[in-house]
């Protein structure tokens, strides 16, 4: 006996096996991301005033990435529709765009990641004067970039300073800080555009804590990196499957076109789900 309903639908349920399978899998994915979102809500609601980082991500880039992902989603359904009409070449074309979009998304994401890994916050023992927009303020928390030995180093933290025996470093301070309210932050960002940065000379002895924008910087970045990395893994996994079906697995179109179309549909369902997760991730992480 062979396994029935691998490509044709079972009469009473009206669906083929893999479609039940993918929807069950997506159900568990809903719970996985649901748990992470509820963690986000709890941590955000419980965060003391002024500790929740906001405004640190590049919104235009995030928006562009959203467009990229939505485009990839529509090409998946268009490809599937072409396949239903038996137009294999058109399908190949659309799915190629999907795969390129997936790569584009990951490329942009890694650029964003790398940018964060060399962007720092330093907590000082004594306050210094920096610009917040057009105002001068006294603060002991400064954002900016480290310059040491003519380089902008990655992944430094308080312990690095101690371990490398660094006595002091140059710090190009950003003209604003995330502890401002969203409105003040927006104002500060707009007035300080293009103005030269303040460069501070910071002694290691004055440093209370130093952290790049890595997961351990704060709960916000912990959430940001965990959620986007998990989402990124899904993008990568989905793209691999779509690529396999598109390239090496395309032989099946000749031997069993119905089953091949089903494969495209099922991989597409997963891909749309990945898109759907991003639709929620984008506002809660980039905007709110």
């Amino acid at each position: 006996m062979d396994i029935p309903y691998t490509s044709k639908p079972r009469p009473d349920t009206g669906i083929y096996n893999a479609k039940v399978g993918i929807w069950l899998f997506l159900a568990s994915e809903v719970m996985l991301f649901g748990a992470l979102f509820s963690a986000y809500i709890l941590l955000r609601v419980g965060a003391p005033e002024g500790t929740w980082v906001h405004g640190m991500l590049n919104i235009p880039i995030g928006t562009f990435n959203t467009f990229v992902l939505i485009t990839s989603s529509v090409t998946v359904v268009l490809g599937w529709a072409a396949l239903q009409l038996g137009n294999f070449q058109k399908y190949k074309f659309y799915q190629a765009i999907t795969i390129l979009c997936a790569l584009g998304f990951m490329g942009i994401k890694s650029f964003e990641y790398a940018d964060k890994f060399k962007h720092y916050e330093v907590w000082l023992k004594n306050p210094v004067t920096v610009m917040h927009g057009d105002k001068e303020v006294q603060t002991n928390r400064v954002l900016g970039h480290i310059e040491y030995d003519g380089k902008h180093p990655y992944f430094w933290n308080t312990r690095t300073l101690r371990e490398k025996g660094i006595e002091g470093f140059k710090f190009e301070a950003d003209p604003y800080h995330y502890t401002l309210s969203p409105k003040e932050l927006a104002h500060a960002k707009s007035v300080s555009k293009g103005k030269p940065h303040v460069v501070l000379d910071i002694k290691t002895a004055d440093v209370e804590r130093l952290s790049a924008f890595v997961p351990s910087h704060s709960t916000y970045f912990a959430v940001y990196f965990t959620l986007t990395a998990l989402h990124g893994l899904h993008v990568l996994g989905g793209a691999l499957v779509i690529f396999y079906i598109w390239g090496p697995g395309a032989k099946m179109w000749k031997s069993d076109p119905l089953r091949y179309t089903n494969r495209v549909e099922v991989s597409g369902l997963f891909w749309h789900f990945v898109d759907l997760v991003w639709i929620f991730l984008f506002p809660i992480i980039y905007l709110l």
Partner: peptide, 17 residues
């Protein structure tokens, strides 16, 4: 594989329109 071949049309409507 399966003898329920009649149900093909139920799954997807392949009609071009």
């Amino acid at each position: 594989m399966s003898n329920h071949s009649h149900s093909h049309a139920d799954a997807h409507s392949h009609a071009p329109e």
